[in-house]
Amino acid sequence: MRPYHKATLFIAASALSISASAHIGAQSHSHNSFIDGFLHPLLGMDHLAAMVAVGLWSALAARRAGPDLLWGPLGFAALLLVGAVLGLQGVAVPAVEPMIAASLLATGLLVATRLRVPGIVAALGVGAFAFFHGAAHGYELAGDGQAWQTLAGMLLATVLLHCAGLAAGWALRQRHVWLARAAGAGVAAFGGALLLQMT
């Protein structure tokens, strides 16, 4: 199977998870183990879309293979963890849910436009949104004796979703770029719709 066919199948499979439970609008989650933490980003459409989109954008916007590919994913994972730690400590972070929705809108637009920015800007930009994803998880896990195991599972799933997005984006860089742009537009529309629901 050609690489772009695999990428097409991956993007289509990701889209099917739209009926899965998302973090936004949910009242609570049962996170109490490494496995629960690992599965949550895979089953929540907001997390899945944001994390895959970061990988897609990183691959589509990179000038070449190498470290340029990793700025966005590393920034996202690092600040996701920072936000989660602060959430666990009960630090109040305003506008968590709107910022999670805005992260979908922003990352979707980045994928659709293939906007190129310096690596540190990419890391801080997507990382700023990841901070709010992490804070939301930290609040949910506060007081949980296995919080660190759960966060470890979430972080591993996050890295794997970034890698999947990177692989799909790299396969689509030269051919069928329209598919990646369409996926980005879909993620942006999803984020926009969530923001409208909150107004």
Rank of each mutant, 00 (worst) to 15 (best):
G125M: 14
W57H: 11
A112H: 02
L86S: 04
L80H: 05
T8G: 13
F131D: 09
W57T: 04
H40V: 01
I100Q: 03
A123I: 08
A112E: 04
S30L: 02
A15N: 13
A92C: 06
L70G: 00
F76H: 03
A22T: 06
L69D: 00
I35M: 12
L115R: 10
L81E: 05
G72H: 05
V91E: 02
A22P: 04
L88T: 05
A65W: 09
L109E: 08
Q89N: 02
S33E: 14
L74V: 15
W57M: 07
S58V: 12
A49H: 05
H29Q: 06
P98R: 05
E97G: 03
A135G: 01
G119M: 14
M45H: 06
G108D: 12
G119V: 11
P98Y: 07
A20V: 00
A78C: 08
V52I: 15
I11D: 10
A84T: 05
R114T: 14
P67W: 12
L70K: 05
P73R: 08
A84N: 05
L56G: 08
F129C: 07
P73N: 05
T113H: 02
G25S: 07
A15V: 04
R114P: 03
A112M: 10
E97N: 04
L9T: 05
A130L: 08
G66E: 02
S103D: 09
V82Y: 11
V93L: 13
G125I: 08
A122D: 15
I35E: 14
A53R: 04
A26Y: 05
F131I: 07
R114K: 14
P67V: 10
H133C: 11
I24Q: 07
G75W: 06
W71A: 01
A123R: 09
I100E: 12
R116A: 10
L56T: 03
V91P: 00
G37C: 12
V82H: 07
P41K: 01
S28E: 12
I35R: 11
G125L: 15
G87N: 04
Q89P: 00
F34M: 04
A50E: 05
V126C: 01
L110P: 02
F38V: 12
A128S: 15
G90F: 10
A106K: 01
P94S: 09
L43N: 10
G55S: 09
G108A: 09
A78R: 13
A12H: 10
V117C: 00
I18E: 14
A7I: 00
F131Y: 10
V117S: 03
M51P: 02
P98C: 06
A50Q: 06
A135Y: 01
A112V: 02
L110Q: 13
L60F: 02
L104C: 11
S19E: 15
V121Y: 03
A77I: 14
L79I: 04
